[in-house]
């Protein structure tokens, strides 16, 4: 078990190193003077020079990367070109909001998605299954930004029940939560249905029936846990994706998370922040995946370490 975790951890570290290379390379790829890019459009010549020497931008690329890596390890992601505040501070201030939204989306999506998928599988090819299948198709095909706008039109503009934007009120999370949750519900429901149907065809399900176990118990006691194993992975990956993929939803609802910060920073050409956000997203995704993999090995007794 421990060696499994260690091996898994090693892979994660390698992946993370790769991500730092990408984040580093991204700024190198920018046209023009990197010092000017990092200092920001509004910076004075003096400031640009200071950035150049502080970040060692006149040194060879290898040296620069090592220094970049060293700074990351020290928790220094540089300074925002816009606000002059440390990038870690900018990100840190908004991260909880992003996690909140992703968590709401994942929990809503997982619970409703699993219920929907199980119902669809139990009543395969019956009206309930068809309805859920159509619903899931709509859910995975719906552009989140359009869904967000539609929800705003109906619930904020026309009915006036819920706030259209921001995170100021207790009810603010409802519309972005639904927006982000719908896709997850659809995804998880599809996955659960497919997984359940596959499990229900297995020989051990037939064994359970042959023993005289009731239909309902076969579904819940024998099939669900087996079917849940692949679903768990999807849910985990989905949570990881929502942490970074909520960019569009955050933008539509002016939700003060890091997705929104990323878009704003791109427009402001605030590259230290963009770079920092990429690193943080990747780190979160990798950590979530690591946790899912370890959980997975607990759920599935077949995995041997």
């Amino acid at each position: 078990m421990l060696t499994y975790i260690a091996r898994r951890l090693a892979v994660s570290v390698v992946t993370l190193l790769g991500v730092t290379i990408i984040a580093f390379g991204l700024v190198q790829m920018l046209p023009g003077d990197p010092a000017r890019t990092i200092a920001g459009l509004m910076a004075s010549e003096d400031e640009v020079e200071r950035v150049r020497t502080r970040m060692g931008l006149d040194e060879p690329l290898g040296t620069q990367y090592v220094q970049f890596l060293g700074n990351i390890v020290k928790g220094d992601l540089g300074q925002s070109a816009r606000t002059r505040r440390p990038v870690t501070q900018e990100i840190g201030a908004r991260l909880p909001k992003t996690i909140e939204l992703a968590a709401v989306g994942t929990i809503v999506g997982a619970v409703l998605g699993i219920i929907g998928g199980v119902i669809a599988a139990r009543f395969r090819n019956r009206p309930a299954d068809h309805a859920i299948s159509i619903g899931s198709l709509i859910g995975i095909s719906m552009p989140v930004y359009w869904l967000g706008l539609l929800l705003i039109m109906v619930f904020a503009v026309n009915l006036g029940w819920l706030p259209a934007a921001g995170a100021g009120r207790r009810t603010s999370i409802i519309l972005p939560g639904i927006t982000i949750g719908l896709f997850t519900i659809a995804l998880v429901a599809r996955m659960t249905r497919a997984s359940m149907l596959e499990v229900l065809e297995q020989d051990y399900v037939r064994t359970a029936f042959a023993k005289g176990v009731a239909n309902r118990n076969v579904v819940y006691r024998h099939a669900l846990r087996n079917a849940f194993i692949p679903v768990l992975t999807v849910i985990g990956i989905q949570f990881g994706s929502l942490l970074g993929g909520a960019v569009l939803t955050e933008f539509v609802f002016a939700w003060p998370g890091i997705g929104r910060l990323m878009v704003d920073s791109i427009f402001a050409r605030d590259f230290p922040v963009v770079q920092g956000i990429i690193l943080v997203f990747a780190l979160m995704f990798i950590v979530v995946n690591l946790i899912v993999d370890i959980l997975y090995s607990y759920v599935n007794p077949k995995i041997q370490y």
């Binding site: 297995q202 064994t207 042959a210 023993k211 005289g212």
Partner: peptide, 30 residues
Amino acid sequence: LRGKDLAMVFQDPMSSLNPVQTVGRQIAEA
């Protein structure tokens, strides 16, 4: 009636047991 009056032993023991439940629990369940 199943498992009580008519009981079955299937062909493939590799796939006929539920992989996520202990063998004992599956026998007890019968």
